[in-house]
Amino acid sequence: MKSIKYIVDKTFHYLGFVLMMVFVACLLFWINNYRYFIYALIVTVIIFLLRNSTKTGWKAKGEYFLMLLALIYFPLLTLMSVSPFLKFKEFQWTHPEWQQTKGQVLSYKSEWETPFRRVSGYAFIDVSYQYTLNHKVYTNTEQKAEKMYYPIWESKERIQLLKAKLLQQTKQQIDSQKCILLYDVNHPKESRFFVSRSLFYLQGSAIYAFSIFIGVLMVLLIINLFFSFKNKNTI
């Protein structure tokens, strides 16, 4: 009969594996656009088939394939995350039946998302708009049409400042008529409102907040190591 410790160890081993798979699934298909993963998978398969690998055995080839997939997927995810222009073009390419039309912005408001007790929170804009097709008026709201991340814990004053900054940024985009409204030709009530088509917008990406946060931690770690080493030499 197997010991209780063996059973507990195996239980936690498989539980950890399941939790990791759930996290990966959320990362690929919920938090981010699942199409990015499909693009990376297609490119990975092509490279894997065309490139002569020295790996032998199914396990070694599988590990090589997963490593190659990660090396393609995460840079692609980063690039799409920081470029509103690429996200807009990707939507156009994958929705050829959607056409551009003129619309009118009815209102927009800024709110604050606090996923982890204000750590890496972000301000976001909801935009309500309407458009007319074949003498019929449609009204929709684009949820979180634009975001503005901040990498560290926020005070109430800073949160209000970021919300105001995002409101002003959105107002400038709307006043300059740079926003784009697309609708589904087959289902006219379905539409998407794009506030920005900037080539790069770093602060609109969670990767920006994460990178700054990690950078701050690295600086603090280096400072701590420096003084620890200095104190050790003075003893």
Results as ranks from 00 to 15, higher is better:
Lys102Pro: 00
Lys136Gln: 13
Pro151Glu: 01
Lys5Trp: 13
Tyr39Ala: 05
Asn186His: 08
Glu142Thr: 02
Ser83Asp: 04
Arg192Ala: 08
Tyr149Ser: 03
Leu49Phe: 11
Lys61Arg: 15
Glu146Ile: 07
Phe74Leu: 15
Leu76Cys: 03
Ser228Ile: 09
Leu66Met: 13
Phe91Glu: 05
Asp9Thr: 11
Thr56Ile: 15
Val105Arg: 03
Tyr208Asp: 03
Tyr34His: 09
Tyr34Phe: 14
Pro75Ala: 06
Asn140His: 08
Lys55Asp: 08
Ala70Lys: 07
Phe74Trp: 15
Leu202Gly: 02
Val216Arg: 04
Ser3Trp: 02
Ser191Tyr: 01
Lys232Asp: 10
Lys232Ser: 13
Ser155Pro: 01
Thr114Asp: 13
Tyr129Phe: 12
Arg158Gln: 08
Lys163Gly: 09
Leu161Arg: 07
Trp112Met: 12
Gly16Thr: 02
Leu181Cys: 02
Thr139Ser: 09
Ala70Tyr: 14
Tyr6Met: 12
Gln104Val: 11
Phe23Ser: 15
Gln203Val: 08
Leu162Asn: 11
Gln130Pro: 01
Val216Gly: 07
Ile214Arg: 07
Val22Lys: 05
Leu71Tyr: 11
Asn33Cys: 09
Gly16Leu: 04
Thr44Ile: 02
Leu161Asn: 06
Ala70His: 08
Ile42His: 00
Glu97Ser: 10
Arg118Ala: 04
Phe74Asn: 08
Ile152Ala: 12
Ile47Arg: 06
Cys179Arg: 00
Lys136Asp: 06
Thr56Asn: 14
Trp112Leu: 06
Leu50Gln: 13
Ile159Met: 06
Tyr108Leu: 03
Val8Thr: 14
Gln169Trp: 12
Cys179Phe: 07
Ser191Glu: 09
Lys61Pro: 00
Phe17Cys: 11
Met148Gly: 01
Leu50Asn: 14
Asp175Gly: 02
Ser107Leu: 05
Asn231Pro: 06
Lys232Val: 06
Asn33Gly: 08
Ile125Thr: 04
Asn233Tyr: 10
Gln169Lys: 14
Gly57Asn: 05
Gln92Cys: 12
Ile222Cys: 07
Glu113Phe: 06
Gln143Arg: 11
Phe23Gln: 13
Ala164Trp: 12
Phe23Ile: 14
Phe124Trp: 06
Ser3Tyr: 02
Thr44Pro: 00
